[in-house]
């Protein structure tokens, strides 16, 4: 079997045309997912058992089912309901991109809220007691003590989740979206050269992952500036 380098060079620019869509899927569902995660986290920390349970059930469902199945349910399943077609969300849900973003958001939100909770639980309780002793309110402690310290603690696990979200965006190609993977599949269908095309695709994802890792590494370094003794 021979490896056709020309084919790689030809297909790379074509796949990169889908980079914008991959990036959009990642950024939009990543940020909406983060907002959802914070809401779920606040529900879990609210001290109200019904909010806590609701969040826990949600997290259980979305972590306990494959994301591909979630995408299919949203893309093929929801339009069956007239109520959905009549609702204001239809303009989003009729588009495969809207469905993919929704599924990715709901999924990453569940994972990230647990990651953030780990960060919050990792904050030294003594610091919160010191805050209380100084007269700080629960809100002050949340904003000035818990949030910055929990963010730093959660960051390594969070950056892993962003990377797995990037890889999950490839699943969008299963519902006709022309992201990088979607384009690669089309090229393969035309050229019958899966080996060259998919390896090139894999390399593009690896470079993208590396960039995300570097970016988070810098952010982590910034947030950890106070943990270095020498400055």
């Amino acid at each position: 079997m021979s490896f056709d380098l020309n084919l790689v060079l030809e297909s790379l620019p074509q796949m990169l045309a889908g980079f914008g869509i991959t990036l959009k899927l990642l950024l939009v569902s990543g940020s909406l997912g983060l907002v959802l995660a914070i809401v779920l986290l606040l529900m879990r920390m609210s001290g109200k058992f019904y909010l806590d349970w609701l969040a826990q059930i949600y997290i259980y469902v979305f972590r306990g089912t494959p994301i591909l199945v979630q995408i299919f349910i949203i893309y093929y399943g929801l339009p069956q309901f007239e109520a959905v077609r009549d609702s204001v969300f239809w303009s989003i849900l009729r588009e495969p991109t809207g469905c993919a973003i929704l599924a990715l958001t709901l999924n990453t939100g569940a994972y990230v809220s647990e990651i953030l909770r780990g960060g919050v639980l990792g904050v030294d309780k003594g610091l919160l007691e010191a805050g209380s002793a100084l007269g700080m309110s629960a809100r002050h402690k949340l904003i000035y003590i818990t949030t910055p310290l929990a963010t730093r603690l959660a960051l390594p696990a969070y950056s892993n989740d962003v990377i797995s979200l990037l890889k999950s965006t490839a699943l969008a190609s299963t519902i006709t979206i022309a992201d990088m993977t979607g384009i690669a599949r089309t090229i393969v269908a035309d050229t019958y050269a899966p080996y060259e095309v998919f390896i090139s695709l894999a390399i593009v994802y690896m470079i993208f992952t590396l960039a995300i890792q570097k970016l988070f590494g810098l952010f982590e370094r910034y947030l950890s500036r106070h943990t270095r003794r020498e400055d």
Partner: peptide, 13 residues
């Protein structure tokens, strides 16, 4: 009432 703890509890950040 002020309080001083065994483990200092200064805000590290």
């Amino acid at each position: 009432v002020g309080m001083v703890f065994q483990s200092f509890n200064l805000f590290p950040h």
